[in-house]
């Protein structure tokens, strides 16, 4: 089964607070990740996030790790680039031919690896604990025009529909002898035309019907109301204050030069 949303239904504090608070929290955490390049600091941040997700979001550590797994090749690549192309300073600890592996670069590689992981997690934190509809509603409440919010919501809604449509089209063409795996790159690209054309045609058709359906539901009438509401509660205040304090402490540490490697 393909998952189309990262949202995990749990009963937790993180799930219950206002998505607007979570958007701000997520932005804070993301920024803090950029402050430091010391592996101890970024590493701590990363583990702190995993444990917070467990405590405040009731999301099992195993689940969090499974979500991070697809990101791993990307992280490893960043680490390798740092090891091989990093700073000229530092002591060589290993040398193969002309490639010198230096201690500071290993340190930087870990710092950056953890930084990227922590950045990913600060976004995941929002996506794993917030329903898509609440996210869109939060954006609308944060003064995004409703039409844009509706557009985002519709786009997200039709991802699974179009994905399963693509599978049906592929099946139909395979039954007509289409073999996608065979041939060189140019031939392979050409083979996707019989899949893309029906997909595009049907999407346009769907969009036209959709426009009619939206009109039949009185869209465009002035003075729209909203059934779902976001309420900024006392616990949001507590959560946001904690986030601000955390952010200020990190900012202070950064200004004082803590957690920054000198290279």
């Amino acid at each position: 089964m393909i998952r189309y949303t990262m949202f995990l239904r749990r009963k937790s504090i993180l799930h219950s607070i206002d998505p607007r608070s979570k958007i701000i929290l997520s932005l804070f955490l993301f920024t803090v990740c950029i402050f430091f390049n010391n592996p101890i600091y970024t590493g701590t941040l990363f583990f702190f996030l995993i444990i917070s997700l467990k405590i405040f979001g009731k999301i099992e550590i195993k689940k969090t790790l499974s979500f991070l797994k697809p990101m791993l090749p990307f992280v490893v690549m960043i680490m390798l680039l740092w090891i091989l192309l990093g700073s000229e300073k530092g002591n060589v600890i290993y040398q193969i031919w002309k490639l010198k592996i230096k201690d500071v670069n290993i340190e930087m590689a870990f710092a950056m690896g953890f930084r990227v992981l922590a950045m990913i997690l600060s976004t995941f934190l929002l996506l794993m604990t917030t329903e898509q509809r609440d996210l869109v509603l939060a954006l609308v409440k944060m003064k995004l025009p409703y039409e844009y919010g509706l557009t985002i919501a519709i786009a997200l809604r039709y991802v699974p529909t179009l994905a399963s449509l693509a599978v049906s089209i592929m099946d139909a063409q395979k039954a007509r002898g289409l073999e996608l795996e065979k041939g060189n790159i140019l031939e392979k690209i050409k083979k996707y035309i019989p899949i893309l054309v029906p997909l595009i045609v049907k999407s346009i058709q769907l969009a036209q019907e959709l426009a009619i359906a939206i009109e039949t539901r009185a869209f465009g009438k002035p003075n729209r109301t909203f059934y779902r509401d976001l309420k900024f509660k006392f616990k949001d205040l507590v959560f946001l204050s904690a986030a601000v304090i955390f952010f200020v402490i990190c900012l202070y540490l950064r200004i004082k030069g803590y957690g920054v490697l000198d290279i």
Binding site: R133, A153, R157, Y158, L206, L210, T225, F226, D229
Partner: peptide, 27 residues
């Protein structure tokens, strides 16, 4: 005819709310 194009919200509840929201009905 095609139900797929008539359900454009992310959940059933929102789908049912969409019309009355546009009409300005109270929550």
């Amino acid at each position: 005819q095609n139900p797929e194009s008539q359900l454009f919200s992310m959940t059933v509840e929102e789908e049912l709310a969409f019309g009355p929201e546009n009409l300005g009905i109270k929550r």
